[in-house]
Design a binder for these strands. Structure first.
Length: 810
RNA sequence: GGCCGAGUGGCGGAACUGGUAGACGCGCACGACUCAAAAUCGUGUACCUUCGGGUGUGAGGGUUCGAUUCCCUCCUUGGCCACCA
């Protein structure tokens, strides 16, 4: 007997698989395709803890299972390494971001490989690699060309601590998602992606995703927040009109005042006419100083009435006060609301604070009002256009340079750059000059690579750190060719300034699944053929990113679809969210608390296979589960039993397995394959244990043992391979095929039909699963325990479900 | 406040479209092996019991021959979103 010693064979098989390219995805294949994708990690911290591998092991089990079932499986891994997490770590370590990123990737990769995960490492990608982000820049050019990437001044979330603006999706509970810093509303000029133009499609196409959890679809609908209503304007006695948007036009008779956002342009206009301009200015300034958190969480409404200006009620002609109040959002609707305090709680709060009237009223007819007021039906969305620029160093540079003057822009437009220009030029005015955004076309993107700089820390101004580097900022464009260079090669070249903001972390992850399909393509982000062959990701597993990443990725996919790069509307067919592994005390694993062990330690103690098996057995995949060292030992103990069973079986040279053994095996096949398919790994493992329990004391021949090993292979690939070779096989067990389930081999011995009397289970009787009701009755008549209950009783009713139950009412 | 989800032994959890609640594992107890311990193997393990049986899936009610599963009310708890007019 050879002792079960995973250290002896786990490293060996990892090496062999690596040398044989065992998990390299076939480029062309007759097999059906299956794309199994993990949400790729950002290597910000220094290493993984014991909770991280859960998702990676699950997708590995699934991928191995699919490969054995004859699929050409794409199962890649890469690194989402641009953006705040990596940059903040680098700043904290006082080192260059590339150094941090490289070290963390190495560490992470070693830890993943230690687990025997079957990634095709030849497809590894890194979003900070110039070979990758050149394609992110190319895809941005598609947005630009289609008029979806625009540069505009709007009220945005400014985070002074991080020195950058943030998208709404980056704000959690009024603070920055990264670091939990305060965030302020400020009007600033920013790059914005027009996701609102896709809002309807993003809602409608959720119908195409039956394999997405409803809660994600609901969360996305809520985030997009489509509402339909009417827009019309209130006249004022100051000659300025105040446009409002309402979803309840019928409440117009109840309007007692108008409320406008402090940041709104309208407020500035009205300020000039106000008698209490100072008070209003003070209020605007006070609002500006408030953080998002304060605005949201202080439930006390504040506002100032504009004195000397009144709105006119369109139905009654009565004069309505106008209030500047920061409960009104500048960035939604018109930045002004008609307040109906009798119907709306927020308006009521405001009315009480300022002692404004609250009137009861009869609702009016929407249709009549709509015609009378010339109120147009409008759709509005909670989702904002995506603020896409960051005033940070560690991100993709925009493939954009700025040229001064329309004349110059027109000259450039004559050349090859012309076909990348949007119908509406992107421009801004600064003093008396006007600047135009000019794309750097794909052929010359190498001139837009992130430079190596002395200092990359955030500067806190809206130009970002790149603005301090003249060699980055100052450039020339050749209008004939579109080439961009730091020196003009002749007089025809036009001076330009490179864009100094960078893209957010979300950029690289908004299309990476497509790059995995064709990772070495230099000419384009990915080929149409590759995208067509693989199609949408079959299973996408990872943490719950219900709104941000999954909305951005769907948006980019649709834009790429419209650009003709992909020909299907949704990127991810099926989503599987992962529950976190908690520390043994039920709290979150945290490095600071030191309440968890390292994967290295666990692998060293019980081996990678036992670790994998334990993480699959720990509980339902989507639910959080606390780590338990005893249960880990249980997983190891099971593998030791499998090992002994296999050795005994090989030695025994039994010619034919017993009927119960064959039957047990068949049941296990059916259960394991159904459970893996539906990501119920915990019950799959449990059925493997049951299978072993039922087989280990029976005579088992080699073919049945080998089938059982195949069922184990996705979970414990090293041990399954080792035992497989011990049976005399020379090819890898992971090539399959998966055992074929044969229902006819299952024997149901001693089926006992449960008998219920008046709803209570009393005893069982031996009848066949297919017995007729009369047969059941005659068995009952002869059965002693039955007679105990039934003697001298009349059976009023009998319900018989063959193979299930018989229920008697007496 | 809104939208989801969850509450089952000492613990993690299982239970198909309503059909034997507690699979599987851990822990615990006893036994075998051992000088002894560990490891391993075997047996038992929801609770109460006068040994007939009774009670049990957060609480209370309902539908049903039958409810962890469906419906109503409530309690506890987790997640996500929260001034969007």
């Amino acid at each position: 007997m050879v002792k079960f010693d995973p250290k002896k064979f786990e490293k060996k098989w990892q090496k062999t698989w690596h040398e044989n390219d065992a998990y390299k995805t076939e480029e062309t294949s007759d097999k059906p395709s299956c794309y199994v994708l993990d949400m790729f990690p950002y290597p910000s911290g220094s290493s993984m803890h014991v909770g991280h591998p859960r998702g990676y092991v699950a997708t590995d089990v699934y991928s191995r299972f699919k490969r054995m079932n004859g699929f050409n499986v794409l199962h890649p891994m890469g690194w989402d390494a641009f953006g705040l997490p990596a940059e903040e770590t680098a700043i904290a370590n006082k080192e260059y971001p590339t150094v941090t990123v490289e070290r963390n990737i190495t560490k992470f990769k070693t830890q993943l490989q230690m687990l025997g995960l079957s990634y095709d490492w030849s497809r590894e990608i890194n979003t900070t690699d110039a070979n990758y982000y050149a394609h992110t820049q190319r895809i941005f050019l598609q947005f630009f060309k289609q008029g979806l990437a625009i540069n505009k001044t709007m009220s945005v979330n400014w985070c002074p601590e991080l020195g950058t603006v943030l998208a709404n999706e980056d704000i959690v509970n009024g603070k920055s998602e990264r670091g939990g810093f305060p965030v302020f509303q400020m009007p600033m000029r920013q790059w914005v992606l027009a996701i609102t133009k896709y809002a309807d499609r993003l809602v409608e196409d959720l119908e195409l995703l039956p394999e997405w959890p409803d809660k994600v679809k609901n969360a996305q609908r809520a985030w997009i927040g489509k509402s339909e209503g009417h827009q019309f304007a209130f006249p004022t006695d100051a000659g300025v009109e105040i446009p409002v948007f309402t979803t309840k036009l019928e409440t117009l008779p109840g309007v007692t005042f108008l409320a406008i956002a402090p940041e709104s342009e309208l407020t500035k206009k009205l300020l000039e006419k106000a008698q209490n301009a100072t008070a209003i200015s003070d209020y605007i300034e006070a609002s500006r100083q408030k953080t998002e958190l304060d605005r949201q969480q202080l439930n006390v409404k504040t506002g100032v009435i504009i004195e000397g200006v009144n709105a006119v009620h369109p139905l009654t002609g009565s004069l309505l006060p106008i209030v500047v109040a920061d409960y009104v959002l500048a960035s939604y609707g018109t930045g002004a609301v008609m307040a109906v305090p009798a119907k709306d709680e927020r308006d009521a709060d405001m009315a009480k604070v300022l002692s404004l009237p609250i009137i009861e009223f009869a609702e009016a007819d929407t249709k009549v009002l709509g015609e009378k007021l010339d109120a147009k039906s409008e759709k509005r969305y909670k989702i904002r256009d995506w603020v896409f620029s960051r005033q940070r160093f560690w991100g993709e540079p925009f493939p954009i340079v700025w040229v001064e003057g329309k004349e110059n822009y027109d000259v450039i437009a004559q050349g090859p750059v012309g076909k990348w220009l949007p119908a509406q030029p992107v421009s801004y005015k600064d003093d008396s000059k006007e600047y135009f955004a000019v794309p750097v076309i794909p052929e010359y993107l190498s001139s837009m690579q992130l430079p190596v700089v002395k200092s990359y820390e955030p500067t806190g101004n809206i130009e970002g750190p790149l603005a301090g580097i003249p060699e980055w900022v100052n450039a020339f464009v050749n209008p004939e060719t579109g080439e961009v260079a730091n020196k003009a090669k002749d007089e025809s070249w036009i001076a330009v300034k490179r864009e100094t903001n960078t893209m957010p972390q979300w950029a690289g992850s908004s299309w990476y699944w497509l790059r995995f399909m064709d990772p070495h393509n230099n000419a384009e982000p990915f080929s149409k053929e590759a995208a067509k062959y693989w199609g949408a990701v079959d299973v996408y597993a990872g943490a719950d990113h219900a709104v941000a990443h999954l909305i951005y990725a769907r948006f980019w996919h649709k834009v790429m679809q419209d650009a003709g790069l992909v020909d299907y509307p949704e990127p991810f067919k099926r989503l599987e969210f992962l529950g976190y592994i908690l520390a043994s005390d039920g709290t979150k694993i945290s490095k600071r608390k030191g309440n968890s062990r390292s994967p290295e330690e666990v692998v060293d103690e019980v081996g990678a296979d036992a670790f994998r098996l334990y993480e699959m057995f720990i509980g339902p995949f989507e639910k959080p589960a606390p780590w338990n060292d005893n249960d880990l030992t249980g997983a190891k103990r099971f593998l030791e039993r499998v090992w002994r069973f296999a050795e005994t079986t090989i030695k025994s040279k039994v010619a034919t397995s017993s009927e119960p053994a064959v039957s047990a095996l068949q049941k296990t096949i059916a259960k394991v394959e159904a459970d893996i398919e539906s990501f119920k790994f915990n019950t799959a493992v449990s059925s493997l244990m049951i299978g072993l329990n039922e087989m280990q004391d029976e005579p088992v021949a080699l073919p049945e043992l080998k089938q059982f090993l195949k069922l184990l292979a996705p979970f414990v690939p090293h041990m399954a391979e080792e035992l497989w070779q011990m049976t005399g096989e020379t090819e890898s067990i992971h090539q399959g095929p998966w055992p074929k389930y044969d229902a006819s081999l299952i024997v149901e011995d001693n089926f006992m039909l449960p008998v219920q009397i008046n709803g209570k289970h009393r005893f069982d009787i031996a009848v066949s699963k297919t017995a007729t009701e009369d047969e059941v009755k005659s068995v009952l008549d002869a059965d002693d325990s039955a007679q105990k209950y039934l003697a001298n009783q009349t059976i009023k009713k009998i319900i018989y479900v063959p193979g299930r139950i018989v229920s008697l009412v007496i």
